[in-house]
Design a protein around this nucleic acid. Structure first.
Lengths: 210, 210
DNA sequence: CCACCCGATATTGGCGCCAATCTCGCGCGG
DNA sequence: CCGCGCGAGATTGGCGCCAATATCGGGTGG
């Protein structure tokens, strides 16, 4: 009722990212219309938007379903993330302010604490928070928007990866290296640390094949 | 009449890229509906799609207009292109087939001929064709789709850049270096040649400020 | 017994109307 | 003469209905 236009897209996107709607699940316009209390036209518009974001697939006269991203596609997405996040990290290292430095350092500390406590879920959230803050600090709006879309497509694989035993111990030092390089205001180190981190992610995804 | 669903988006996109619709031009749903012979709902859906692609801006209750991308945004887009096209070039060098090699070599030859003849327009088309083929050969669908969207946003700046006197002489050897590296099957050389080329593009865009 | 065809059902796509909202211009008052 | 408020026009947003199409099931014939 109090929905502003476009909020249906947000609601459905959140539901997909949250996992309420699983891969390949059909999204019937009438059902969503009732669940969200929105008109069918609004739902349709939202589905068009989400199709453009790569979160749902729409087949003419056959309806929409949430897109199931394959492992190969997850690797592709991670390759693009490597290229774009390293760019953002380098830019962030150049323009980071004092306040942002303390913020990043705090995230690093909380990551250490989460790993020490074995808090996988908390670490996963911090992981997302760190990457998001780096994107925002970089000021590269184009890259930021694209990366946010790719992240939404990849959350499921990302989450499965975080659940793998021993993953935290590998991931933590990589993230700390990124934080340290940005704190030092060293663009090339930040870029290389980010590249190394995402190479690790890609290798871990590849290892899933075997 | 014989429009398949989604073709309205293609028609409007083509019109924007072609320049029939200029930056900041208002896109009134009723007018487009009549021009294209499509229903207003179809036009609306197309505008939502194009808004997702960053080609038009939609403000609630205030209509849609074609997005005017600023010079700063054009530089951002080119930075992202640098990151993604270098990735595609490296991958293309790894998987290029014999048939694709001859095709790329032919494009290189035609570029040389166009520069020799002073054919700026023909060179601009070959430029687009070369970049597109490299993206396609790479097999990186995610990067390819993103790059195609970015290209559509940037055609105006790209075209203005191509018109600058002396630009061809600078651009040609950079493109030939990319072709040569891919023909040689050398991923790191292809990546570096592409980076160098797009650094040149970015520098040329920056020079527009002065 | 199996394969094919055909009809019932569910779902999307399209169209017209009406309400909500914004923009622009006119008139009023200071 | 200028600023402000208000109303008319234009445009988008939403809703209900109907047609077009795909899917699934049963029935029939070989």
């Amino acid at each position: 009722m109090n929905d502003s236009p476009g909020s249906v897209a947000d609601a459905v996107r959140a539901a997909i990212v949250r996992g309420d709607f699983g891969p390949n699940q059909r999204l019937v316009e009438a059902d969503l219309s009732e669940q969200l209390g929105a008109s069918r036209a609004a739902v349709r518009s939202a589905l068009v938007t989400l199709a453009g974001e790569g979160l749902v697939e729409r087949i003419p006269h056959r309806g929409a379903k949430v897109r199931a991203v394959s492992l190969a596609e997850a690797i592709e997405i991670s390759e693009v993330r490597l290229a774009l996040e390293s760019l953002c990290a380098a830019k962030a290292a150049e323009v980071v302010t004092a306040g942002q430095r303390t913020e990043l350092a705090a995230i690093g500390d909380r990551m250490r604490a989460a790993v020490a406590a074995g808090d996988v879920l908390g670490y996963s959230n911090l992981n997302e928070e760190l990457h998001r803050r780096v994107r925002e600090i970089s000021g590269q709006r184009t890259a930021r928007d694209l990366l946010e879309r790719l992240r939404a497509q990849n959350v499921r694989h990302q989450f499965k990866l975080a659940m793998r035993p021993g993953r935290l111990a590998v991931s933590l030092p990589e993230h700390l290296a990124i934080v340290e390089a940005i704190l030092a205001g060293d663009p090339v180190a930040a870029e290389e640390a980010t590249r190394a981190h995402l190479r690790g992610v890609i290798d871990a995804l590849r290892a899933t094949v075997s």
